[in-house]
Design a protein around this nucleic acid. Sequence first.
DNA 1: ATCGCTGTATTATGGCAGTGATGCAGTATG
DNA 2: CATACTGCATCACTGCCATAATACAGCGAT
Lengths: 114, 114
Amino acid sequence: MNNASKPVYLKLRDIISESILDGEYGEGDMLPSVRAFAVEQGANPLTVAKAYQGFQEDGLVTVKRGVGMFVANGAKAKLRDAQRADFIKNVWPPVERQMKRLDIKLDELLENGA
Amino acid sequence: MNNASKPVYLKLRDIISESILDGEYGEGDMLPSVRAFAVEQGANPLTVAKAYQGFQEDGLVTVKRGVGMFVANGAKAKLRDAQRADFIKNVWPPVERQMKRLDIKLDELLENGA
DNA sequence: ATCGCTGTATTATGGCAGTGATGCAGTATG
DNA sequence: CATACTGCATCACTGCCATAATACAGCGAT
């Protein structure tokens, strides 16, 4: 559900986020250009730009006009913190509620996908 | 995130689901009429009808035309099973992946919202 | 039969999000 | 300056969601 049935620009956002968190793009590295990433992902350059836009607003990437977009200093930690906060505040509560409502124990979950 | 920023008819679906699972509407009980529930939720009767429509397609409610919609026999168990399956197949995997990526332990979660 | 409730179907409209094509603006390099 | 790359802005198209007005069809009680 992370990569299905959700807007393309959000999927692209996720891909970039994961790439930064996983260290594929280190701090100071240049991200793929809008057009290059569009081709790579089979998306429209506009859609990629829209995905990138969120990152600059959050200060995670530095834009050098005419040059490219670069991973900002401290982006990895910042991104991690933000995602942790979002997870704890927005993602986990409904999941926990759902588990209680359906009486799903952690045991039945931890055996599988691991 | 369960009741925010998602289509109204899906929110209504969730409300009904929870009401059935929690026993507010027992099997055989009549659900609120389309018009009544619309007023109660501040929604449009058409939107409520759209929400109800999914339940009949899944055999969770029995429609008595001209009378009302009633919770079908075995609806609670059926609903529970379906939601459990969906949770395990679609909801939990990305949650678990996210937890691993962000190094979130179950400990920090189980203390809070409980 | 009549009245009042039930769900259903039709059609039309407004709003919004996602996507796409084109062109413009800034920068580096030769 | 010329070229080729970068990001960015504008416009327009599409589809989904929600709403609305209206009419129809089935059932129960009077």
